[in-house]
């Protein structure tokens, strides 16, 4: 591998990592507030992607305009998921896995019914082409996606730290009972979290559809990536998620540069297993701080 390929992989991996951060945040926010692991996370993103694709192919609008639309389109599902999660028996971690494994199957079937098994991509001309910078070729699509992802993550960061509802969400995530004792409306904070998280998923879906082909069963890989990031970063630490996301993007890009794209999925699953074994229940550690 030449130095240039290496640098190329590092940069494009870091750009992809910004997207991964956005993608994982929705998962980790719900985990933080409800202690529920949402295995249908990736499928929701794919669904957002399909909605974006459908709008894009119908309207021909620039994909960035479709981002908010897809975000809003998932909001009804947020309420449905919230309603279901509310009824999960203890221990939540496990029962939520069981429920969402089924919901993931359901979403896949719905997407299969609506868009059949065909691969789709938002192949907008405005996103093709590349920029040359210091000898590196930067894919324009990835740049736009990374910029959009960073903008959304930044807005979320401001929202969570500067607003009343943001503080309510963070307090609920830190310690639900203590938050309730302090007079915070934890139920409302939970609902807001679901709405925000699903909005993020829709946004991530459209961005994802400009990078990768969509297919109905493709969600699991995103779910696994989100879990890996959450194990690495812990729950509720936005900046750590960003660092972990970029790291993961770089690891992935290096794998692809070194051995070709075939091994990508395998590497993601291996990383998940290795992270679980290394931290044996590491996700739990995130809840306590």
């Amino acid at each position: 591998m030449s130095l240039n390929t290496l640098a190329q992989a590092l940069v494009s991996g870091a750009l992809l990592g910004c997207f991964y951060t956005l993608m994982a945040l929705a998962f980790s926010m719900i985990l933080g507030v409800t202690r529920a692991l949402n295995l249908s996370h990736g499928d929701l993103i794919i669904l957002g992607g399909y909605l974006g694709y459908w709008l894009w192919s119908g309207s021909g609008l620039h994909p960035l305009f479709l981002v908010p639309v897809a975000g809003a389109a998932l909001l009804p599902l947020a309420l449905l998921w919230h309603w279901l999660f509310h009824r999960l028996p203890e221990p939540r971690e496990l029962s939520s896995l069981v429920l969402t494994f089924g919901l993931s199957l359901l979403l896949q079937n719905i997407m299969l019914a609506l868009w059949r098994g065909e691969y789709r991509l938002i192949a907008s001309e405005s996103l093709t082409g590349s920029l040359a910078l210091a000898g590196l070729r930067l894919n324009q699509g990835r740049l736009v996606v990374a910029a959009a992802a960073l903008a959304v993550v930044g807005a979320l960061y401001l929202g969570l730290t500067r607003t009343r509802w943001g503080r309510a969400i963070r307090a609920t995530s830190l310690d639900r009972e203590a938050a309730a004792l302090l007079g915070i409306n934890v139920d409302e904070a939970t609902r807001t979290t679901f709405l925000l998280a699903f909005c993020l998923s829709g946004v991530a879906g459209v961005l994802f559809a400009t990078l990768h082909y969509l297919y109905p069963a493709g969600g699991i890989e995103l779910t696994l990536l989100a879990i890996v990031l959450t194990i690495w970063a812990g729950v509720g630490r936005l900046r750590s998620v960003l660092v972990a996301g970029i790291l993961l993007g770089v690891v992935e890009a290096l794998t692809v540069a070194w051995s070709g794209p075939r091994w990508r999925e395998l590497v993601v699953s291996l990383m998940l297993l290795a992270s679980l074994l290394a931290r044996s229940g590491g996700l739990a550690r995130g809840w306590s701080h």
Binding site: P91, L224, W263, V268, S269, L270, S280, L283
Partner: peptide, 24 residues
């Protein structure tokens, strides 16, 4: 050393790993 939900996730990853191996 894994229990409950974490064991479940590990088995999920395990199945995906075998799928990846069979593919490659």
């Amino acid at each position: 050393r894994l229990r409950g939900a974490y064991l479940a996730l590990a088995t999920l990853a395990y199945a995906e790993i075998w799928r990846g191996i069979a593919h490659n």
